[in-house]
Design a protein around this nucleic acid. Structure first.
Lengths: 155, 155
DNA sequence: AATGAAGTTCAAAAATTTTTGAACCTCCTG
DNA sequence: CAGGAGGTTCAAAAATTTTTGAACTTCATT
C-alpha cells in the first residue's frame, strides 16, 4: 500500500478546488474531500487516508463522504473480505450535476412566468424586459441540453 | 402616489424568487428585495416602500440595496429636488450575471488542467475522465458564450 | 445654526451552518 | 461471546453569516 502524497502544491490546489465548490454551495469539508480525490496520486482512497490526509475528525469524514456519495460525486467500493470502505471519485457524476444546473435555469424561467402573469395588465418596459429574459433563459436551457446530449452521444 | 400591493400571492412568489437567488449565493434579505421588485405593481420603489413592504430594518434595506446596486441588479435613481433615492430593477443586469456564471465554468476547467499536470505521469481512467470533463466544460463555456453573444446581437 | 428627513456604518446580537466528540452500532476474530 | 476495527449518528460547541440598533453623516428647511 503506497503512501498518499500531499505536498505544498497539492495542498494549495485542494484549496482552490474547495473554494470553487463551496461557491457552488457545497459544504467546506466535503469540498476539501473532493479536492483530495482530485489531487491525490491515488484513484481509490480509504476512510483513514482521507481522515489523516485532511486532518478531519471521523464524523467530518463520514458526513462528507455520505454527502458526496448522495451527490453521485463519489462512489463507495467494498472489497470482499475487507470490512473497510474504499472510495473513488466519479467524474461522470458531473454530467448529472451539470444537467441539474441546466434545469435550474428553466425552473427560474417558470417563476418569472408567474411574475409576468401577475403584471400582465401593465405594458411597461419591465414587462417587455421580462419577456426577453425568460426567452433568454429558455434559449440557454435548450442550448445547454442539446450540447450535453450531443456530447453524451459522441462519448 | 399609489399604494404598493402585496397580497398573499405576491408574498409567496417573493419567497420562491428569494429561495432561488439564495441558492445562487445571494444574501436572504437582498434576495427578498429582488423579489419585491419583481412582483410589485410598481417599477420604481422608494427606500421606505421596501422597508415597509418587507418589514425590514433600515440597515437591512440599505445594505441589501447597496449589494444589489453593486451587482448591477438594481439601479438607483435620483430626482432633482427630492432627497430620497428611488430604485429600479435592472433586468438587463442578468446578462452580466449570466456571463459571469459562464466564465466560472472556464475557471474551473483551468483548475482541473493543473490537476491534470500533477497527474500527468499516470495513464489511469481518471486522467482520461478528467480530459473529457475539461473538454465538456470548455465546450459548454464556448456554447454559452456564443449563444449569449448571438442573442445580444439580435436584440 | 437648529431641526428633521433620509439614509449609511459598524459593532454586537441573532440566526444559521459546520464541525466535533461521545455514544452507539455491527461485523469479524480469537 | 469479549474485544476491537471501522465506521455512523446526533446533540452540543464552534465558526460563519446575517440582521439589528444606535450612533453618525449630509443635505434642506425654518
Amino acid at each position: 500500500m503506497n503512501e498518499l502524497i500531499l505536498d505544498e502544491e497539492r495542498g494549495q490546489l485542494i484549496e482552490q478546488i474547495a473554494l470553487f465548490n463551496e461557491q457552488q454551495g457545497m459544504q467546506p469539508s466535503a469540498a476539501r474531500v473532493l479536492g483530495l480525490f482530485l489531487v491525490s496520486n491515488k484513484d481509490i482512497l480509504t476512510f483513514e487516508e482521507i481522515k489523516t490526509g485532511l486532518n478531519f475528525s471521523k464524523s467530518a469524514v463520514s458526513q462528507s463522504l455520505s454527502l458526496l456519495v448522495s451527490m453521485r460525486q463519489v462512489e463507495p467500493i467494498t472489497l470482499p473480505g475487507d470490512r473497510r470502505r474504499y472510495f473513488r471519485l466519479r467524474l461522470d457524476g458531473w454530467r448529472f450535476h451539470i444537467e441539474k444546473a441546466v434545469e435550474g435555469a428553466l425552473d427560474y424561467s417558470v417563476v418569472l412566468r408567474k411574475v409576468m402573469q401577475l403584471r400582465s395588465d401593465e405594458d411597461s418596459t419591465m414587462t417587455r424586459s421580462l419577456t426577453e429574459l425568460i426567452a433568454l433563459l429558455e434559449l440557454l436551457h435548450q442550448t445547454l441540453r442539446d450540447t450535453v446530449k450531443k456530447w453524451q452521444e459522441s462519448h
